[in-house]
Simulated scan of single mutants.
Amino acid sequence: MAPPRTRRPAEHAQQLILQAAEELLIDGGPAAVGVRAVAERVGMTDAGVAHHFGSRQQLLVALLRHGGRRIREAVEAVVGAWVDDRADVGALIRAIAGVYGQGYAALAVSLHAAGWRDSGTGMLEPVVQVLHTVRSRPRRLADTRLAVAALHQALALDSVYGAAFRRSAGISEATADRPGPQLTWWTNTFRVTLGLDGTE
Score class of each variant (00 low, 15 high):
R5M: 04
H12N: 11
G28P: 07
A174Q: 13
A10N: 06
S172F: 07
I17S: 11
L18H: 04
A2F: 02
R7S: 02
A149N: 14
A62Y: 04
W82R: 06
G115K: 03
I96T: 11
S110C: 04
L111H: 02
V49T: 10
W186F: 15
L151Y: 08
E11L: 05
F190P: 14
S168C: 09
P138Y: 00
A10V: 05
D46W: 08
T6K: 15
R41V: 05
M1A: 12
G90T: 00
T187C: 10
A106T: 03
E40K: 09
A106D: 08
R178P: 00
A77M: 09
A169R: 14
G180M: 08
A176D: 02
L111T: 00
F53I: 02
R140T: 03
H66Y: 15
P4C: 00
T144Y: 04
P3H: 10
A174D: 12
V75Y: 09
A87Y: 08
N188A: 04
V83D: 06
A114M: 04
M44F: 13
G101Y: 05
Q129P: 07
R41N: 07
R94V: 01
T6E: 10
G29R: 08
V148I: 15
E11M: 02
R5E: 00
T133P: 00
W116G: 06
A163T: 02
T133H: 15
G29S: 02
S119F: 02
L157D: 00
A149P: 15
V134I: 11
A37K: 05
L63V: 08
S119K: 05
G120N: 08
R8I: 03
R69N: 01
L16V: 01
R41A: 06
V89D: 10
L131N: 04
A142T: 03
R139L: 12
V83S: 10
A97R: 01
T187H: 14
T189V: 13
R86Y: 11
D88K: 00
D85H: 11
Y100F: 15
L124R: 02
L131Y: 13
F190L: 15
G195C: 12
L111Y: 00
A47C: 12
E125H: 13
G80I: 14
G162L: 06
A163N: 08
L92I: 02
A62C: 12
L155D: 09
E40G: 11
H52S: 13
G120S: 06
Q58G: 05
R178M: 01
L92Q: 07
L111G: 06
A87E: 09
V38H: 03
